[in-house]
Design a protein around this nucleic acid. Structure first.
Length: 438
RNA sequence: GCGGUCAUAGCUCAGUUGGUUAGAGCACAAGAUUGUGAAUCUUGGGGUCGCGGGUUCGAGUCCCGUUGGCCGCCCCA
């Protein structure tokens, strides 16, 4: 039996699994649409260079890549951002701005499996192009929060940690550091939550032992957990006035999110910088409040990327939510959907003649949109009633010899177990009446 | 790429110091049941015990290897 298995890290979706996935996607879609985002899609297979251009050569080891029959180096998409940048870049001058787009797609990464991570997974990606101000971040963070609230998750379950790569850059720049040092320190900040002070090893290997005063300033900055503390830190001596100008954007962003009633979901946290070097401004990550799972979602501003991938200069912000960790959180909080695949109507058939009589009704009811099922083989009535009850149908239509002779169909309410007769010609109306009448 | 741990029916698991033909519950199916549902009873299908090799008269059990799952490290777009 188990001769062929799925490849490591890949998943089969049995109907009950797919039902859950579909439910998640449906709510995400509805929510994105409610925010005015338009859905797009792109090829699963892309030129390998698309990812090299964005992420460098090291990325190749993490990709499902191969050479196709035409000698082209290709890869299964590991993320959506480069693809959507291509789409937007190619028509940047024709698209009305702001460009608000989303997709729900499957991605592939050649990585070791872990809790909440496999080699294939789905993501909701949402991006706003063409809006340089924090208004775009407001829109996206609000969408992100709503994509989780739509399932019943609250600010007790998750929060969005908000930080700012631009501010980090300006802050470290004002301390007199050059760009290579800044990038190395940001990598250390990213690691610090997991590794503690070991996070500075990489920096010290490249640039020598870190100055105690610098380390103190960096640790102080990454420990900032509120806007008040941020304002205070930027008021300290040695921080240039230009840096504090950035505070106006912060104020606008936090005020906007507060006005949307989302303040309780937002956690200022300068310890978040995200590993990705291409982020140029605000960055944010969604986490479960208990801190038991890996990140639920991540995003940020990447104003240079469309241009770097060959398009025009175009400011952009985006985020992605993966399905695996999200499904784990829903499961943990008992919010995983129980999706009914039950029919509305189950037909009980006496025999050959009754089956034929029922078929006309069955087909008519199905055409009208009712979910109708019936036994494929002739079974005793006892078995059929059991099957009807097991199916989860609300009503059974009984086509027996007696009914056929009298020109009627019996409708049994499978919940309260009452029965009523209807003329055979009035079945559709009777069923409609049952479901529409409540 | 590295480490820990596990692998017996669709699922959850039992299987004694190595000993005859590998079991149970649930699930599935047939019947008791030719007109009324969650019960009961009977019966059945399902396993190369993850795979390969070794030790042994004999391996689900012991040893080695390998594949895969889970958990963690590196990484995390």
């Amino acid at each position: 039996m188990a001769t062929f298995q799925t490849l490591p890290g890949f998943r089969d979706f049995y109907p009950e699994d797919l039902a859950k996935r579909t439910h998640i996607f449906r709510l995400w879609r509805q929510t994105a649409a409610a925010f005015g985002f338009a859905e797009y899609d792109t090829p699963v297979l892309e030129p390998l260079d698309l990812y090299r251009a964005k992420s460098g050569d090291e990325i190749e080891g993490q990709l499902f890549g191969f050479t196709d029959k035409g000698g082209r180096e290709v890869a299964l998409r590991p993320e959506m951002t480069p693809s959507v940048c291509r789409l937007v870049g190619a028509r940047a001058n024709a698209l009305k701005r702001p460009i608000k787009w989303f997709s729900i797609a499957e991605f592939y990464r050649y990585e070791r499996m872990q809790k909440g991570r496999g080699r294939c997974f789905y993501q909701l990606n949402a991006d706003v192009f063409g809006e340089p101000g924090p208004e775009a971040e407001i829109e996206l963070i609000a969408l992100l929060v709503q994509c989780m609230r739509a399932f019943g998750l609250t600010d007790k379950d998750f929060c969005v940690r908000l930080s700012d790569r631009m501010l980090w850059f300006q802050f470290l720049g004002s301390l007199g550091l050059d760009e290579p040092r800044i990038r190395s320190l940001l990598a250390a900040v990213d690691k610090h939550e997991r590794s503690g002070d070991d996070a500075f090893k990489g920096y010290e290997e490249s640039f020598g032992k870190i100055d105690d005063e610098l380390k103190r300033r960096v640790l102080g900055f990454l420990g900032i957990r509120s806007f008040g503390a941020l304002e205070q830190a930027l008021g300290e001596p040695g921080v240039s006035a230009a840096v504090s100008g950035r505070l106006a954007d912060w104020r606008k962003l936090l005020d906007g999110l507060g006005a949307m009633g989302l303040g309780d979901y937002i956690q200022v946290d300068l310890g978040v910088v995200r590993g990705l070097a291409y982020y140029t401004g605000f960055v944010f990550e969604a986490f479960d409040r208990k801190g038991e799972l890996r990140a639920l979602a991540g995003g940020g501003r990447y104003d240079d990327l469309v241009g770097r991938l060959g398009g025009p200069e175009l400011p952009a912000v985006g985020f992605a939510v993966g399905d695996m960790t999200f499904a784990l959180l829903l499961e943990e909080r008992g919010l995983s959907p129980v999706v009914s695949q039950a029919p509305d109507v189950y037909c009980i058939l006496g025999g050959e003649a009754e089956r034929k009589a029922a078929f006309a009704d069955i087909n008519r009811l199905r055409a009208a949109g009712f979910r109708v099922d019936y036994p494929m083989r002739d079974l005793g009535f006892g078995k059929q009633f059991k099957a009807a009850a097991d199916s989860g149908a609300k009503i059974a239509l009984i086509y027996g010899g007696d009914e056929l002779a009298k020109g009627i169909v019996k409708m049994r309410d499978l919940v309260d177990r009452t029965e009523r007769d209807f003329p055979a010609s009035g079945v559709e109306a009777a069923v409609r009446g049952f479901f529409e009448g409540g």
